[in-house]
Amino acid sequence: MSPRAGKNTGTPHTLAFVESPVQLLNVLEWAHAQHPRPAREESGTGFTLVVLSPNDPMTRGQLRRMAELARDEGHTVRWEEARGGTMAPFRTIGGLMSPLRRADRIVMGDPFSRYVQLLLTITRAAELVVVDDGTATMEFVGQLARGERLVRWHRKGGRPGPRDLLFAPVSSSARRRLTPRADRRVEVFSSMPIEDIPEGVTVTSNTFAWTRDRFGPPRVTKGADMVGTSLVETGVVDADRYLEAVGALAKAHGAARYFAHRRESAEKLHRLAVETGLEVVRPDLPLELIARRGPIGRTVLSFPSTVVHTLPLALSGTDVRVAVCDIDPAWLTDHASPRAQGFLSGVTGTARDVHRLAAVSSGVGSAVGSAG
């Protein structure tokens, strides 16, 4: 059953598209930055938030929880079963034609999404806003600045497949649509370090003010927690090497819990729990909210990922230390993109307010910490 429609104060001029819980969180952060207000205060700034629902059960569950928070903020949530069968895309796009044409402003969480790129060919909105979709935002801005085709970082370097070639005209059109001009404003709302800013693009900092305003501060425990990644699932890191590294880090820092990424496979997580003894936690909300609500360990261990940028912001004012472990080049698979190591190193190297940990040597079972 689809979630019920939320309240709104009239026909919205802003239409937001999200496909993940983190994207939805960052749309709420963007809305708060536009119109900051005390928690639970009635607002006349609501807009329509369209969830292009994926099929993954974990992602759907987190999205439903986030959708309730969006309704509490006064926004209308439109839940689209965008991938529910062969005809679903046609029904979804057909139903969105009118709202797309009426919208003055489009907010999107994933400019690499083929769904979003297709929707961009329909709208004539004068204002486009890209909110964080994690580390992919860094790559998107760089590609836009260099005039390159929009390709996710872990796929870059490979030869385009038949579907890529078929979709190339739509992707090119979306890139042109996301390029500022006199009659079109483009904004990037991000907590990530943005260096190569394309001419005309406005970059606004996401400080996670909404998260800090609505949740916490958390109870901080004495131990350490670990944050999982989907680097194995995306084919970047070898599964055996990853599990060895997790076990070594957990032992070195006394970690007890492992917060799983929503894309991590059940098989890998079961093996991880058996081999490392860690308690695997499947969060029902994005980790930034889970950590802010608490309880959370005094040290949070992570591999290079979005959270090394976002958690220090969400946990600002607490005693929690975020520590990041570098990825050893030996962990990469033969299928990993040639850019993978450099990109992951950049994610770690540009993170603020984190502690750097040396990569865990395979079989050694120790990790050396160094302040960063």
Rank of each mutant, 00 (worst) to 15 (best):
H355V: 06
T350M: 11
G294T: 02
G369M: 13
S2W: 02
A82S: 15
P295F: 06
A145D: 11
V308D: 03
R321Y: 02
E42F: 08
G142W: 06
M108D: 13
Y115V: 15
S345G: 06
A145R: 14
R146D: 10
A209Y: 05
Q62W: 01
A245I: 13
E279G: 05
R163F: 13
D132R: 00
T333P: 13
P169F: 09
A126D: 09
A245L: 03
F112W: 05
A168R: 02
D334G: 15
G85E: 07
A174Y: 07
E275S: 01
L311Y: 09
R184L: 14
V246D: 15
E42R: 03
G363R: 15
F303P: 06
E199Q: 09
G158F: 09
L269M: 07
I122T: 13
V354I: 12
M87V: 01
V280M: 15
T204I: 05
F343E: 02
H32F: 15
E275G: 00
T202C: 03
P162V: 09
T348S: 12
D56A: 14
S316I: 08
V237Q: 00
V141G: 00
Q34V: 14
G363L: 12
T202M: 08
V368G: 09
T348P: 00
R292F: 07
R298K: 11
T310I: 11
A351H: 04
E275K: 00
